[in-house]
Design a binder for these strands. Structure first.
Ligand SMILES: [Zn+2]
Ligand SMILES: [Zn+2]
Ligand SMILES: [Zn+2]
Ligand SMILES: [Zn+2]
Lengths: 133, 133
DNA sequence: AGCACAAGTGATAATCATTCTCACTATGGA
DNA sequence: TCCATAGTGAGAATGATTATCACTTGTGCT
């Protein structure tokens, strides 16, 4: 592939954590200042289509992505303390949602778990959580 | 409350189904053409804060809302055929997600179920589903 | 190597949902 | 009734994302 896409892919690796497009642009431009924002958008869209990254939500009105580490159906644990995103297996596989589904045929679902990662859980006081949903 | 808010509240009732701000503006203006878009945004925000409506997702880059019918913790069934949104009880209450949660303390979750409502399930061929996630 | 075509790039403008500003008005209590 | 306050409406402002377009790069073929 082209040089900008290589730089963008390695920037995603270097970031490790979840990132917005702006995070990624900053990381990319540390090495290649000439790369345009539109190119980063296009590269992330291509990586998403190729399952190299996945969108995990929104932060400050901007899309959040993480590097794809797990294959197949899974969900995400989002730390409300530091923003870390971890992968989790699906807890619904053997739990059909029976109540309230009058005639509804469920074919897909989205699940995101919020909480505190190991680091944040010990670090902060229990009162400083940011509840959600 | 004021006249515009009364009109907006009754328009939400009249719609019944899930709606975007534009849907609601159209319904509102059928009776009160002078109501401004910003007023509808503000009224929906107030109703959301008062738990009179809840946001259930996104349709065509616009926020989707439904009238609040269930109290407390619950989730939503979204028909990918007609857009109908129904309420569902939480299937996770007795299923702690154990796998892959190294030290993570889960405090909240978001879950949305996609599928076909009773009407759409019988009406359309099985091939025309719109899968998600 | 030389060439041709397709894909990618970068700057900029356009889009579009949502929010802000501000002058004006309706509301509801004293 | 009178006033303080919250709500209103029009339009401008914001900000993320996308489209446009002329230019460059990568690729395969000869
Ligand atoms: Zn954390
Ligand atoms: Zn799942
Ligand atoms: Zn349906
Ligand atoms: Zn739940």
């Amino acid at each position: 592939m082209t040089a900008p896409r290589r730089v963008i892919a390695s920037a995603v690796d270097r970031l490790g954590r979840a990132f917005t497009i702006d995070d990624l642009v900053a990381e990319v431009r540390a090495l290649a200042p000439s790369v345009g924002i539109a190119t980063v958008y296009r590269a992330v869209a291509a990586m998403e289509a190729a399952h190299a990254v996945e969108r995990v939500g929104t932060r400050d009105e901007s899309a959040l992505y993480v590097r794809c580490t797990a294959d197949g159906h899974h969900h995400h644990l989002v730390c409300t303390g530091c923003g870390l995103v971890a992968h989790a297996t699906c807890p619904l596989d053997d739990v059909p949602p029976l109540h309230g589904t009058e005639g509804f045929v469920v074919t897909a679902h989205e699940l995101t778990l919020y909480g505190l990662c190991a680091g944040c859980a010990t670090e902060v006081s229990p009162a400083s959580e940011l509840p959600r949903s």
